[in-house]
């Protein structure tokens, strides 16, 4: 196993598969009356969140607690962090507290990589800037595998603001590792220069892609991007790249619709589509706990 989970690229095929298989076992715990395993008793997991994300923080917190770890929530608000303490000083504090794992969410790309140089414990990237969000990619892969049986050869369209999306970066890397075929669909302004080197295809035309996919993953698109001329208006964006009812109807029968949340209903996805049987949005949340349990278990379980 690996020491840190900073990028989906840290996972080779066998390790990624091990995480998903372990998550499957962890999911059975959720069905029990006592939803707890003693595995990480006496271990300390710190949630270090520089950005508000109740959803992700709670998911990691529940995961750690189900493994009987002690959880410290070190949120940026109201702590020394918001008083301008440097990441390095915070890292030294966490080190002194004996953190076995630090789960970090940060608005700066690469902050988890910096942190990993300053603490002895494992660092888990829970989303860094516009870089990566590897546990989101793992839970997405887990969800696809649960619904569709396999990832090998799966045709996945990831639609929306790829440029600013850490979810897209992690998903492209992980899905390629696991043998899926990814197509990014986006207006050209919201694709990074250099995307050509990524292990995926690129399209500007959602309608040309839709009929031929097993999974369509809609990314959150902030309306404010139009102020920077990434697109002319929210309405035009929704018309060209939104998953509305008519488009959803043209998906293959078995295809699923995913969204990492939080959704802009009416922007990238129509409410009727988000609430349809194809949508996996609620189970993605549940799967998040199982996958994060697996990650913490595999990072910490092997160490004494």
């Amino acid at each position: 196993m690996i020491t840190h989970l900073l990028s989906a690229a840290d996972l080779d095929r066998s390790t990624a598969t091990l995480v998903l298989d372990t998550a499957t076992e962890m999911a059975t715990v959720a069905g029990r009356e006592v939803k707890k395993l003693p595995t990480l008793r006496g271990r300390t997991v710190v949630n270090l969140f520089y950005e508000d994300s109740t959803r992700t923080r709670t998911s990691f917190e529940v995961a750690a607690k189900r493994l009987s770890a002690d959880v410290i929530n070190f949120s940026a608000k109201g702590s020394s962090v918001s008083k301008g303490e440097s990441l390095k000083d915070t890292a030294l504090t966490l080190q002194a507290m004996g953190a076995d794992a630090v789960v970090i969410r940060h608005s700066a790309s690469g902050a988890p990589h910096r942190l990993a140089r300053w603490v002895d414990g494992s660092v888990v990237n829970a989303g860094d800037g516009t870089h990566e969000h590897p546990t989101q990619a793992l839970l997405d892969a887990y969800t696809m595998r649960s619904r569709l049986g396999t990832l090998e050869g799966l045709r996945v369209a990831i639609v929306g603001d790829v440029l600013h999306s850490r979810v897209a970066r992690s998903n492209v890397l992980l899905l390629a590792t696991l043998g899926a075929k990814v197509t990014l669909v986006s207006p050209p302004t919201l694709l990074p220069v250099g995307v050509g080197a990524w292990p995926c295809a690129v399209s500007y035309d959602l309608d040309a892609v839709l009929g031929d996919v097993d999974v369509v993953m809609m990314l959150r698109v902030q309306r404010e991007r139009m102020n920077d001329s990434y697109f002319p208006s929210a309405r035009e964006y929704a018309r060209r790249y939104g998953l509305d009812v008519a488009r959803a109807a043209r998906l293959p029968e078995h295809a699923i619709v995913m969204h990492p949340g939080p959704m802009n209903r009416g922007m990238e996805i129509a409410p009727e589509v988000a609430d349809s049987a194809r949508a996996t949005i609620v189970e993605q949340v549940a799967n998040g706990v199982s996958v994060r349990m697996a990650v913490l278990y595999l990072l910490l379980g092997g160490k004494s």
Binding site: S109, G110, G129, H131, R166, P192, G194, V195, W198
Partner: peptide, 9 residues
């Protein structure tokens, strides 16, 4: 370029 795309910077 390719590195900025990958690193999200």
């Amino acid at each position: 370029g390719e590195w900025s795309a990958r690193l999200g910077l």
